[in-house]
């Protein structure tokens, strides 16, 4: 069901995202991002995965004073709210391409404010994609599948995962020594 929204589930998550953003509840957005990515993994739902990335990016933005105290913030928040409302309207009419376009516009607004106000070369939106993709990988998807679902760059994802404890939590049944034994046997050593 790649690309297909999980109907009511998607609407429920979108409305929760809009309410949390309007109320300025950063932690709710973070929590919503985490739940959404788990559900996106289970249903292979790229739209829900994108909502999870937006939730996480907005959580990061609301957590940073230099964003929310900027003179431009009010206009940007209005633009984000407007894109999200359009996405909601499209979803109510089951117009999925319009929904996706409105979600992409929301992402664009996030990237624009980030480009303007952030001090870092890698933007909040890209980082949010990597973060959510790493959760998708930790949930059981392969590396490239997790990147595909979230739109994250697979190289950046691999590096990010390397610095987490994901691979220490589920070690393989055969370790380096066992594989070396197999390898040497194969090579006739």
């Amino acid at each position: 069901m790649d690309g297909k929204p999980a109907g009511g589930n998607l609407m429920k998550r979108l409305e929760a995202l809009m309410a949390a953003f309007r109320a300025g509840k950063a932690q709710d957005l973070k929590r919503l991002g985490n739940i959404s990515i788990e559900r996106a993994v289970e249903g292979g739902d790229t739209n829900l995965a994108q909502l999870s990335v937006i939730s996480y990016a907005l959580y990061k933005i609301l957590s940073k004073d230099h964003f929310v105290k900027s003179k431009k913030w009010e206009a940007i928040a209005r633009s984000i709210n407007s894109s999200l409302a359009k996405a909601q309207g499209a979803l109510q009419k089951d117009k999925i391409p319009e929904f996706s376009q409105s979600i992409e516009n929301t992402a664009k607004s996030i990237r624009e404010i980030d480009d303007e106000l952030s001090n870092y070369a890698q933007g909040i939106y890209s980082k949010a994609r990597i973060k959510q993709a790493s959760t998708a990988y930790a949930s059981g998807l392969s590396l490239n599948r997790a990147a595909e679902l979230t739109g994250a760059d697979s190289r950046e994802l691999q590096r990010y995962i390397g610095f987490t404890r994901i691979h220490d939590e589920l070690p393989p049944s055969v370790g380096i020594s066992g594989r070396m034994k197999m390898l040497k046997g194969m090579l006739g050593k």
Partner: peptide, 23 residues
Amino acid sequence: ALFAAKYGGCAVSADEIKSYMGQ
């Protein structure tokens, strides 16, 4: 080099590396 591979994203645990290095 083994830890660099791990931090580069290779699915190997720190315990595996330590156990192998012990040999």
